[in-house]
Structures are given as structure tokens and as C-alpha cells.
């Protein structure tokens, strides 16, 4: 219940209508959107029960490892109702054509593979919010100071998922496990995304805001 309340509203991409469509424009829009989403997601993390009790250093380490997984999982959940399209924001939905134009066809196809998995399972909002918190708590940072505290956070979230499934999906006792088993693909896809945006950063043609840059650099 606390995670459902903490779930942030979607934000708008607001692509500049005066700029003609191009790969640079699409990537600029996405990087600006990601930067603003990250601010929102850091605020969200503080509402995960147990997260604020971690040391500041461990909170930072988990976010530095897991931020892209959180961004992608949010796009995936928003896209469940559509067919072969990614809802980066309510006013920014990418189809195959736009993905090609932005040079994001491979990455977006990988994200669509996740969408397909969750569609097949009928992922619910309750499951999505817990899974997202688990992705953060389980982001496997190498810099954790108090790994027992992080383990306790993982256990609490894992327990919440198991309780939810026991109550709401007693017909499928393996549903919680099935959901956890989607996390490797999320990790893999996030790693691809980070790699892709690191090379865009090195190109230097797309302006990026400071928080997005800071977190990309934490992954470099």
C-alpha cells in the first residue's frame, strides 16, 4: 500500500515544437525527460519503507546501480496497454519508425521484449511497484557498506510480493518467482541502455543535464 501511494505521476516530455524532427531532437527530448524522471525517482526511493534508514552512502550506491532499471521498468509498465510502442511519456510514444529515426531500434526492441513478457503475465500495478523497489534494493552495487541492512530491505520487499501473490494469485504459487525471474532481462536491457547513452555522451552532440550525466558517469 505504501508503494502504491508513493508511485509518482507520469511526467511530460514536451518536445520543442519549433525544432524539426531529427535523431538529435529525439535523443535530446529523451535525455531531458530522463533527467527529470530521475529527480522524481530519487524522491520516490525515499518513500520505500526501509530505504531512508540505510546510510546515505548506501542509498546513493543503490541508486547509482539501479537508476536505469527503474527508468526502464516505468516505461515498460506505461507501455503495457499498447502494441509495439513505447510510452516514454504520455506525450512521447515511440513506434518502430521513430525508434529507427532516433537510432534506438535495437534498444527499444529489447525493452519491448520486457513489455511482451509482462503482458503475457498480466502484470498488475501492485506487482509493478514492488518489483521496481526490488530492482533498486537488489541492484548489486559493489560499494555497499552495510550489506545486512540492504539484505533486510530486500527481504521485506520480497515478503511483500509473496504476501500479495498468496492473497491475490493463489492459483499460481510460482507467480512471485516468475516475476523475480524477469529481472535478469531488465538488468541486461538497462546495461544496454547505459552503454548506448554513454556513447551518445561521448559523441557530444546531444545536450545532457547534470543529474543524468552524473549517474551515467557513475556507471562508466
Amino acid at each position: 500500500s505504501l508503494l502504491l501511494v508513493a508511485e509518482p505521476e507520469g511526467i511530460f516530455a514536451m518536445p520543442d515544437p519549433t525544432v524539426p524532427e531529427s535523431d538529435i531532437k529525439a535523443l535530446t527530448t529523451l535525455c531531458d525527460l530522463a533527467d527529470r524522471e530521475l529527480v522524481v525517482n530519487i524522491g520516490w526511493a525515499k518513500h520505500i519503507p526501509g530505504f531512508p534508514s540505510l546510510s546515505l552512502a548506501d542509498q546513493m550506491s543503490l541508486l547509482q546501480s539501479g537508476w536505469m532499471e527503474i527508468l526502464i521498468l516505468r516505461v515498460v509498465f506505461r507501455s503495457l496497454a499498447l502494441e509495439d510502442k513505447l510510452v516514454y511519456a504520455e506525450d512521447y510514444i515511440m513506434d518502430e519508425e521513430q525508434s529507427k529515426l532516433a537510432g534506438l531500434l535495437d534498444l527499444n526492441n529489447a525493452i519491448l521484449q520486457l513489455v511482451k513478457k509482462y503482458k503475457t503475465m498480466g502484470l498488475e500495478k501492485e506487482e509493478f511497484v514492488v518489483l521496481k523497489a526490488i530492482a533498486l534494493a537488489n541492484s548489486d552495487s559493489m560499494q555497499i557498506e552495510d550489506s545486512e541492512a540492504v539484505q533486510r530491505l530486500q527481504d521485506v520487499l520480497h515478503g511483500a510480493l509473496q504476501d500479495y501473490e498468496a492473497t491475490n494469485h493463489p492459483e499460481d504459487p510460482r507467480r512471485a518467482g516468475k516475476l523475480i525471474m524477469t529481472l535478469p532481462l531488465l538488468r541486461q536491457t538497462a546495461a544496454r541502455a547505459v552503454q548506448h547513452f554513454c556513447s551518445i555522451k561521448q559523441d557530444g552532440r546531444v545536450p545532457m543535464h547534470k543529474l543524468f550525466l552524473e549517474l551515467l558517469e557513475a556507471k562508466a
Binding site: I42, K46, L56, L211, E214, E217
Partner: peptide
């Protein structure tokens, strides 16, 4: 930590 000052600031904000 100096390298990650925006994240640090956002986590420290009370909101």
C-alpha cells in the same frame, strides 16, 4: 562523493 553531489543533495532534501 564530491563526484555525485546532485544525487547527494537530492537524497538529503527532506521532501
Amino acid at each position: 562523493k564530491e563526484k555525485h553531489k546532485i544525487l547527494h543533495q537530492l537524497l538529503q532534501n527532506s521532501t
